[in-house]
Design a protein around this nucleic acid. Structure first.
Length: 200
DNA sequence: AAGAGGATGCCCT
DNA sequence: GGGCATCCTCTTC
């Protein structure tokens, strides 16, 4: 069954980011069902987190979605090319988000290969936030989608990894974020090869 | 109205 | 390991 609404309303986005590891992300887009196990996440903890688009509680058209109740998607375009898929968490008006950086393919691998224009099933297919989104078919049309619906959702398979099964490190590409650049808020499943970059 | 820069990935060397 | 593609958003003039 789907993760319940309460899952997305937990207060500590860092803990929720870890709890998403091992869960199953689904997309059912244009009649094409795909799924994969979430293997890598990053926590973005505004208002105090300078790396977040909602740093300081900043409200623009783009960041409005951060201030909705948790349990919806946030998709934005990065470098003019890549669609990055996030999950908004927490209570209304506390702008937390979790970036999904990689999955291990399970269902609909045929569709993933087509969307990525690839023939080999290996980590570059779904690892890295832009690649993952492309493989799953996520575009700007999938911003602000309710994760209780039937287009994009996360399945609760009962898996909750222990600290020993999780690796962590600084987030990717946030060097500008001052004190928050070095926060160990990137998480991965230990010894799983479906990750975007090695954890040191 | 214009310009800078970004939560990346690919291809080349 | 480095350069570059490519375009939206936000900031500032």
């Amino acid at each position: 069954m789907k993760l319940l609404p309460a899952f997305y309303l937990q207060e500590d986005v860092v803990e929720t980011s870890k709890a998403l590891l091992g869960k199953i992300l689904y997309s059912n887009i244009n009649g094409q069902l795909s799924s994969g196990m979430i293997t890598e996440t990053e926590a973005y903890k505004a208002p105090e987190d300078r790396a977040s688009h909602a740093f300081g509680g900043k409200r623009t058209k783009r960041t409005e979605v951060f201030f909705e109740k948790g349990g919806i998607s946030y998709v934005y375009l990065c470098y003019g090319i890549h669609h990055l898929f996030n999950v908004i968490t927490n209570k209304k008006n506390i702008p937390h988000a979790i970036l999904i950086r990689a999955i291990e393919p399970i269902e609909g691998i045929k569709y993933m290969l087509e969307r990525r224009n690839k023939i080999i099933v290996s980590p570059p297919l779904t690892c890295g936030p832009g690649s993952m989104s492309q493989a799953m078919g996520f575009t700007m049309a999938h911003n602000k989608i309710d994760l209780q619906g039937n287009e994009i959702w996360i399945e609760d398979n009962g898996i909750l990894l222990s600290e020993k099964e999780i690796v962590k490190g600084p987030r990717i590409g946030v060097d500008y974020a001052g004190d928050y650049a070095s926060m160990p808020w990137r998480f991965g499943i230990k010894d799983n090869k479906w990750i975007s970059k090695p954890f040191k």
